[in-house]
Amino acid sequence: MKKTAFILVLCIGLLLAWAVQDFPAWGDPKSPASSSPVASHFIANTGVDTEVPNMVTAVLADYRGFDTMFETVVVFIAGLAVFSILRGGPKSRTRDREFVVDFEPDLIVTNTVRLIVPVIQIFAFYVLAHGHVSPGGGFQGGVAMGASFILIALSWDLKTALARFPIERCFTVAALGIVIYAGIGLLSLFLGGEFLDYAHLAKIFPVSPEMARYHAMLGVEIGVGFTVTAIMFALYASLSTDGRMRDGL
């Protein structure tokens, strides 16, 4: 079995190596991907079309915003699936833990976390809000935000974190994030454009169509941030307790 697997891997490897001879040279500005009109359009027109200085965010949240909407949905699905599978599982999971963790939260740790958490959260907001100007965005900001709640759960216990962010509210917030994203798209649909055509938002907001794209990108990033924050924490809470939502790490 191992030998067959090895031969298969070798075959695929040789196939991939064979394809490399046909690749454009490393960093070649004339390669199809770099010189294609699509890439050139992104480079030349991002500023004109959207007024967003960060090209990557413009591609992610506007030119290919539909992909990103479904990536957010994928995050939502992951949380939903893990939560629903683990919750109320078979009886065997309720067995006693091998060791009982029963001690007071450590003074040094909790006080350090008390200081750090607000900083992390403000930094998360910064990353999220500056996504279209500098590197960052909804996914990164959301992960930092979610991590702050996980840090609370790790340094006190899960109950303390759940008191601040109950598991039911996680899914409400996550769904809300998708509603924000798809809702912005829908609004532009109702205003006479295509789905996710943010420029049409200029009809109801006192900005130019380009600035409407700029602001709508911030809007969808906020939606992404909501979903990612909530699902990050929900995944941690579900997985660390086998879905029981008590004890935990």
């Binding site: 009109p37 699509v38 030119y63 290919r64 915003g65 295509e194």
Partner: peptide, 18 residues
């Protein structure tokens, strides 16, 4: 054909929007 985000398809090869 429906272009999400309302981007034009005039380029060759097309593919600015989805």
């Amino acid at each position: 054909s429906y272009i999400l985000g309302g981007w034009s398809l005039d380029l060759f090869p097309r593919g600015v929007g989805i």
